[in-house]
Design a protein around this nucleic acid. Structure first.
Ligand SMILES: [Mn+2]
Ligand SMILES: [Mn+2]
Ligand SMILES: [Zn+2]
Ligand SMILES: [Zn+2]
Lengths: 146, 146
DNA sequence: CTTGCACCTTAGAACCATTCCAATTTGTTG
DNA sequence: CAACAAATTGGAATGGTTCTAAGGTGCAAG
C-alpha cells in the first residue's frame, strides 16, 4: 500500500469523522501540502494543485484548506498581515520567519518548554492554543524544514 | 509639568532622533494609545482621535501609527488576519486573545522565560524578535491590562 | 434503478484593511 | 518673505479572502 494511499485513507477517515466527503479536490490539496512542506500560501497551493487537477478553482482551494484546518489535519499560520500559510506539521512547533529569504522554518517545541510558557499566565487565563513566532535571519546552512 | 507634557516631550524627542517632526496629529494619536491601552485598531484610534482633532483623516492615522511603530514607541500586534492592533507597552510581553470577549490582555514575560524560549532555536537561527500569542478564554475577574 | 436531497465546486462579485497617489497645507531654513 | 521639504488629506487602487448564486456529484430511500 503506497503512502499516498495511506494519506488518502487518513484524510477520508478524518473527513468522515466530521460528516464530510472525500473529494478529488480535497485529496489533491492535502497531498500538495504533505509533499512540499514549505508553508505555501493559498495561491501557491492553487498553482501546485492545478498540475494534477487543472480545472480546480481558487475558491475551492480556499474551501479545501479551511476544511483541512477544521479537521485538524493542517495548521493555518499567519505572519503580520501577509497571506495565510498552511502547515501539515501537527507536532507542537514554533515558526521562524526568515526576513532575508521569506522562508518559514518549523522549530520543534519540547513539552517542558510549552509548560513553562503556559506557566506565565496568571490564574484565570485558560489558553486553548499558544503560538510562538520568531523573526530574524537564519545564517549559513542549517537543517531540514522548508 | 503634566504627564501629557512629559509624553509629548518623550515623543518629540524620539521623533527628532529620527529626523521627524512633532505634529498635533502624531501627538494626539500617541496620547490616545497611552490613555486607553486596550490594543485598538486603526479605525478605533481614528474614532478616538477625532474627539480632539475632528478633521484628521484615516490615512493620517495610519501614517502616524506607522511612524510611532518605526520610532519604537508602539508595537503593532496581529491576531490571525484581523486588523492590526496597537500597543504602547514596551516591556517584553505576550498577548492573550480572549475568544469570548475579543479583548487582548498583556502578559508580562520574565527575562528568564524569554531566554528559555530562545534556547529552542538550533544554532544558526538568529532571532530579531519573538512573539507569543495565547488564544483562549479568561474566566472570572482577573487583574488589569485592558 | 431513479429521484430527492445534501454536499461540493465554481466563477465572479463583494469585502475590507491597508497602501498608494496627487494635491494641498504646514513648517523650517536661508 | 521665499524656497523647499515634510506632513496631511481624500479618494482611488490593491490584494487576500469571503460571499453568492448557479450548476454538478453522489449517497440513500423508495
Ligand atoms: Mn512572510
Ligand atoms: Mn481579534
Ligand atoms: Zn509549521
Ligand atoms: Zn500589548
Amino acid at each position: 500500500m503506497s503512502s499516498a494511499t495511506l494519506n488518502t485513507d487518513a484524510l477520508s477517515q478524518r473527513l468522515a469523522d466530521s460528516g464530510l466527503r472525500s473529494t478529488p479536490q480535497r485529496e489533491v490539496v492535502y497531498d500538495v501540502l504533505l509533499k512540499k512542506r514549505d508553508h505555501p500560501t493559498a495561491d501557491e497551493v492553487f498553482a501546485r494543485v492545478k498540475n494534477g487537477l487543472p480545472t480546480i478553482s481558487l475558491a475551492t482551494v480556499y474551501n479545501c484548506l479551511e476544511t483541512l484546518v477544521q479537521c485538524n489535519l493542517v495548521r493555518a499560520v499567519n505572519f503580520e498581515r501577509g497571506p495565510t500559510r498552511y502547515c501539515p506539521n501537527l507536532l507542537p512547533h514554533a515558526h521562524f520567519h526568515d526576513e532575508k529569504t521569506g522562508k518559514t522554518h518549523d522549530i520543534d517545541l519540547p513539552a517542558d518548554l510549552l509548560e513553562k510558557v503556559n506557566s506565565v499566565l496568571p490564574p484565570g487565563y485558560n489558553p486553548s492554543s499558544v503560538e510562538i513566532i520568531f523573526r530574524g535571519k537564519a545564517t549559513g546552512e542549517v537543517a531540514s524544514s522548508g
